[in-house]
């Protein structure tokens, strides 16, 4: 077998995105040569992208083998579960009045839940726990303040690495809180709530 799985999947990404883009672009007028419409350049770039995607796919049939690592069934199940759970959580949050639906909180909740579910599987943890921690930071920053956001995000992301000790994490949180306060609040005067708001 000479199939280059990575290239074929890359081609899939390029072609897929380009196809969606071309479809969305039907909303925009192409215009004339003199007065090009908003749809002209996107059409061109998506078309080039799609063409290149097909070229990559064609090459991928012959320049392999370059397999991707096999996914276990639990990896697949929890990834799909995360996608569904995340979307469901986000949509549910958007319906709840008050904090969950305010601003971008429903999006944050969706991402957070969507990332937490696959991180049940150990091999997904580096990717999804770091992402979940990042989302959590955004979720709590404006309500509980910078200090709480740092503490929660660091605590959650520390689970992604087995070598962490509870003492080390606490030390790191304290260190980062002091450092971030000194750098971002004291020195740079970033506009961000520092403490929880009541």
């Amino acid at each position: 077998m000479k199939l280059n799985t990575k290239d074929l999947l890359s081609a899939g990404v390029l072609i897929g995105v380009a196809a969606v883009g071309l479809w969305l672009n039907t909303d925009h007028t192409m215009g004339s040569a003199r007065r090009m419409g908003p749809g002209y350049m996107p059409w061109l770039s998506f078309a080039v992208m799609m063409g290149l995607g097909f070229l990559v796919a064609l090459a991928g049939l012959f320049n392999g083998p370059d397999p991707i690592s096999k996914w276990t069934s639990s990896e697949i199940v929890f990834l799909i579960g995360g996608a569904i759970g995340g979307v469901a959580a986000g949509m549910a949050a958007a319906q709840v009045p008050g904090w969950p639906s305010a601003g971008w909180n429903s999006l944050g909740i969706g991402i957070f839940v969507g990332c937490l579910i696959p991180s049940i599987v150990p091999s997904w943890r580096p990717l999804f726990l770091v992402s979940a921690a990042f989302a959590l930071f955004g979720l709590v920053l404006e309500h509980l303040g910078l200090m709480a956001a740092i503490a929660l995000a660091v605590a959650l992301s520390s689970l992604a690495d087995k070598t962490h000790t509870p003492k080390g994490v606490v030390g790191l949180v304290v260190f980062l809180c002091v450092l971030c306060w000194a750098v971002f609040i004291y020195e740079l005067d970033i506009r961000v709530p520092v403490w929880p708001q009541f």
């Binding site: 770091v130 992301s157 790191l172 961000v192």
Partner: peptide
């Protein structure tokens, strides 16, 4: 690295937010 990566993450997050 176990101390590095959460720090990088936090600095990125604050920077992006700001």
């Amino acid at each position: 690295y176990r101390y590095m990566y959460p720090s990088i993450m936090i600095f990125c997050a604050i920077g992006v937010y700001s």
